[in-house]
């Protein structure tokens, strides 16, 4: 299972990066969303996999009686999912506002912070 997931993760990464290399902001956003999933999956896989036994202690016992899935990566990924969603929402709105202000979805046309042909800074003191 780890092997199969490692392969899936590498495809997730490759697709996410391919999308993020685009000049179109909406494709970049799709890439960011997939990238988050790729990272979460790789953290999850790195914590080793265990089928079907969730890390929940049975009612009558003080500790789990059988080996369960590792709880720690799950806790890490859980918050990561929510945070990456917040980031995605922020980027989405940022892209939307940038499109409204600048009238383009092409990153080559978004040159407010680093305008083209900026003059040389003054050489004096």
């Amino acid at each position: 299972m780890e092997v199969a997931l490692s392969f899936v993760v590498s495809v997730f990464f490759a697709v996410a990066i391919y999308l993020m290399l685009s000049k179109h902001i909406i494709r970049i956003l799709l890439g960011v969303s997939i990238f988050g999933n790729a990272v979460n999956l790789s953290i999850f896989t790195a914590g080793r996999l265990m089928r079907e036994v969730p890390p929940i202690i049975p009612e009558a016992l003080p500790t789990p009686e059988v080996a369960t899935a590792s709880p720690l990566p799950q806790a890490l990924v859980l918050t990561a999912i929510v945070i990456s969603f917040s980031l995605f929402a922020f980027l989405l709105v940022l892209a939307f506002r940038a499109y409204q202000e600048l009238g383009t979805d092409d990153t080559d046309g978004m040159r407010v912070a680093e305008p083209e042909g900026e003059p040389m800074p003054p050489l004096g003191y």
Partner: peptide
């Protein structure tokens, strides 16, 4: 090429980790 290499690199690293 860049995306494929990068994805493969991260996948290999994950495989190695496991």
């Amino acid at each position: 090429a860049v995306a494929g290499t990068c994805g493969a690199a991260l996948g290999l690293m994950l495989l190695r980790v496991t």
